[in-house]
Design a protein around this nucleic acid. Structure first.
Lengths: 114, 114
DNA sequence: TCAACAGTTCCGAATTTCTGAACTATGGAA
DNA sequence: TTCCATAGTTCAGAAATTCGGAACTGTTGA
């Protein structure tokens, strides 16, 4: 298993963020993570309600989110804890994450569209 | 030549916007259009400095931007005038476009977005 | 040592993107 | 009108990307 790559804050590219969140499944995962606060595991986030994401696809979604700089993943025993990098990100790209979550209507604490 | 399709404001999907702007060439084109104010033509936006985009690719980029709701295109004689739909978009997705352009404008070596 | 579990990697199939070449639409000149 | 030049679109095959089942890796507990 290769070590997990996380870009430094200054290496994060807005295109990568937009790309990562342009996929509704990834966005749903990210929004859940942003809402949940605590570090969600992969399998805990696999169920989208209308469909269960295959685990190889899930793993890839997390990789895209991680390598774009949106989340931090850390192995904890047998599972993986994931958390958003929202605070850092807001420093580098002010308002971006919030505006995206608002656009999708999934900003934590707002009436949800799902 | 098929008539140009522009989605109604309420039909614009955030994932389509993020997808359209997740491509660095399209983002550069959109940023130039947003900065220029006036309606830029396709060929006027083809030169990215480091590379000239082939015109079939350019045409496709404009189609993606148009059908995602980011720009409006209108034939004017032999050429095509393109303008952003920023004002409308800000109503539907407050702060989104500005946050993206700001984020993009912060990359080293990029022209400042506004 | 072994089994169970969480997640990753591999790899072939399906889908999407890219771009040169051919084509269409418009305007101007003869 | 006819012809040409220009701006952009469409087509189609090649290249690249994405998807997901199956096999694999790393960790824990028995």
């Amino acid at each position: 298993m290769r070590p997990l790559f996380h870009p430094a804050l200054e290496d994060i590219k807005p295109e990568a963020i937009l790309y990562a969140l342009s996929d509704p499944e990834r966005l749903a995962i990210f929004a859940k993570l942003a809402g949940a606060g605590g570090g969600g595991t992969c399998s805990a986030l696999a169920d989208l309600g209308d469909r269960v994401i295959p685990k190889s696809s899930l793993s890839n979604h997390f990789k895209v989110l991680r390598e774009s700089g949106l989340i931090r993943s850390e192995r904890q025993g047998v599972e993986m804890r994931n958390q958003t990098r929202c605070t850092e990100l807001d420093e580098r790209f002010p308002g971006l994450i919030r505006a995206i979550l608002t656009a999708y209507g999934q900003l934590p604490g707002q009436p949800k569209a799902d």
